[in-house]
Design a protein around this nucleic acid. Structure first.
Length: 554
RNA sequence: GGGCCCGUGGCGUAGUCUGGAUAGCGCGACUGGCUUCUAACCAGUAGGUCGGGGGUUCGAAUCCCUCCGGGCCCGCCA
């Protein structure tokens, strides 16, 4: 139900010639459900007092037969009021049909996200990326799009060479999760490799990797597998199901070939023995594609990747969820697509940029080991959730408690990563994250569980009509009515934080409703039951879009 | 030198695209509310030059200009 359109219909009859009716939704329902500031504009033209104009307009407005029950002028503002019961019935009935979103024509889109490298740890920066990517995937799916989830990681190159150097020379023994342990080896090796002699050794290993030196392959394959297992473990904990794992080692050869072809075609050129893209004409500087050693750099690999992604997966669009620090790089890359004559690929490659997760001490660095690993955060939060569960619900079996604690933890991590705007850095602090109070994932889940519990306990049939007894009921219904426009905004911007912010406002109003409006045994039981059902529909959808599993109990 | 982003109470953050009626919210502090649908909740109090200055406008946190502070990117990492 679009409130603004309803108000425009009424205004149009009295003022047919206007292009814009300056409609807005007042923050405070006391000031109306919809309002117009058109009097300001007309006052200026006619050189009259806006308040007088507003009251003149109001006299001309006819609301009989519309969904409005009143319209008044408050100074220069024209405020429309609904018949709360009637409009609430209309909204709730719409929401109960559960067709909340209009589906688009089916299309195939590839969302590329997460991007952990092998031979390095999976840290909370990767986690933000993964959670954003998954939420974007779900938003697209909700709109009717067929989504391919893919992750693309570096399993070859200097960082792998360093790690392998450490593995072969530092005499360390694998312990615990071997993939995670490799991350530590990488950090230690980075510290040790501090002179030209050792750097040369690492360079040699790197070269042998690209040459697929048979003496190095078993060790590379084995360690790579450890990392991939760890990466899959993290994805499982986050409940993310990837359709494709793409690795640099799969695309680097083809990428190199393409780079050489583009060199021949004159799209790329040679400089100091390297192959570069000279984009200075386009104000995009210079990008080195192949090193003077003849090794494919990141851009070359991306050339191979884009071909694989568009051709193999038959998608019309690729969304790259990658940190904002690579924004300039993606502009360069997409420009190369254009210059190479791949117009469709250039047009349909999108970079969704988000800010990084930093520590209070500064940037995270796998190289120095200055990172918060995903598993560290997860385990600390899980322990806390378990302790709280034990305090609150000691009667519940340990097994059930553990399951619930896991869900609480994942909800908190995901919501925490999503509720901040994409353009804002997350300054990670354990004190903030080790709390399940206030604006957290648990708050959202808690409101949902409360709604569910009431529903379970009610046996009486649903009353046919909504009766608004308390203002909060009306506020909650209006908030639920916003879902479609909120979804549309998130979809158009490819920004899940829009949904997360909405989730909090919605849960906030529900908790208030819960506090103020007894349901079971109340004379409004039937009406409120319907509100709760609608809430479960809307919040259920919202939780899903955020990648959260709706909880049955806490 | 070129480009991008951020700056809102002690801390964190929404609102900025699309200007509108007293700038929302969380944490922290203080106060009150569980024999009542689970209080990881709710209500209330204190706390704000919306980084500074100029401009546009009937009206600016929001648009434009400028300055300040912080972060990121720009030839052989990814």
């Amino acid at each position: 139900m679009d409130f603004k359109k309803e108000a425009i219909k009424v205004l149009k009859k009295a003022l047919p010639k206007q292009k814009d009716y300056f409609i807005e939704i007042p923050k405070d329902s006391k000031l109306g459900d919809v309002s117009s500031t058109i009097a300001f504009v007309l006052a200026k033209k006619k050189k009259k007092n806006p308040a007088d104009i507003a009251s003149e307009i109001v006299k001309k407005l006819k609301i009989e037969g519309t969904c409005f029950s009143g319209v008044t002028s408050a100074g220069p503002y024209i405020n429309f009021y609904f018949d709360r019961d009637a409009i609430s019935n209309k909204i709730i009935n719409e929401l109960l049909k559960n067709k909340l979103i209009k589906k688009e024509k089916p299309k195939r889109v590839l969302v590329e996200f997460f991007h952990p490298n092998t031979h390095k740890g999976v840290h909370i920066g990767h986690t933000r990326n993964a959670v954003i990517g998954e939420a974007i995937s779900r938003i697209l799916e909700e709109a009717g799009i067929n989504v391919i989830r893919a992750t693309y990681g570096g399993d070859i190159g200097p960082h792998v060479a360093k790690c392998l150097w450490g593995y072969m020379n530092l005499g360390l023994k694998p312990e615990g999760d071997k993939g995670e342990w490799l991350g530590a080896v990488y950090a230690l090796a980075s510290k040790k490799i501090n002179n030209e002699f050792l750097k040369k050794q690492v360079e040699k290993i790197n070269k042998r990797l690209y040459e697929r030196d048979v003496s190095l392959m078993p060790i590379w394959e084995r360690t790579r597998e450890w990392s991939i297992n760890h990466i899959k473990k993290v994805l499982k904990l986050l409940n993310i199901k990837m359709n494709a794992f793409l690795w640099e080692s799969h695309v680097e050869k083809d990428g190199l070939k393409i780079a050489r072809q583009l060199l021949k075609k004159g799209v790329l050129k040679e400089s100091d023995g390297a192959i570069i893209a000279d984009l200075t004409k386009h104000n995009l500087g210079i990008l080195v594609v192949v090193s003077k050693e003849g090794l494919p750099l990141y851009p070359a690999k991306d050339l191979g990747l884009v071909k694989l992604e568009f051709n193999k997966f038959k998608v019309t669009k690729i969304i790259h969820v990658v940190g904002v620090e690579q924004q300039f790089y993606f502009k360069q890359l997409f420009k190369i697509f254009e210059l190479a004559g791949w117009k469709e690929w250039a047009k349909n490659s999108i970079h969704v940029a988000y800010e990084l997760v930093d520590l209070k001490s500064g940037k995270m660095s796998s190289r120095t080991g200055e990172v918060v690993l995903f598993t560290d955060l997860y385990e600390k939060m899980l322990d806390l959730a378990k302790i709280e569960m034990q305090k609150r619900n000691p009667e519940v079996s340990i097994k059930t408690r553990e399951k619930i604690a896991h869900k609480i933890t994942i909800s908190a991590i995901k919501y925490g990563m999503l509720s901040q705007s994409l353009s804002k850095k997350i300054l990670f602090d354990y004190r903030d994250w080790l709390s399940f109070e206030g604006d957290t994932g648990l708050y959202i889940q808690y409101s949902y569980v409360r709604a569910r519990k009431i529903l379970q306990k009610i046996k009486s049939p649903m009353r046919q009509k909504i009766i608004i007894e308390r203002p909060v009921e009306y506020e909650l219904i209006k908030k639920m009515n916003e879902f479609q426009s909120v979804f549309k905004e998130a979809y158009e911007k490819l920004d899940p934080s829009v949904i997360a912010h909405y989730a909090y406002r919605l849960a906030f109003l529900f908790n208030k409703f819960y506090e103020e409006c007894p349901v079971i045994g109340s004379e409004y039981e039937g009406s409120r039951l319907k509100i709760i059902k609608a809430y479960l529909n809307v919040m259920g959808k919202v939780l899903h879009l955020l990648g959260l599993k709706p909880m049955k109990r806490i």
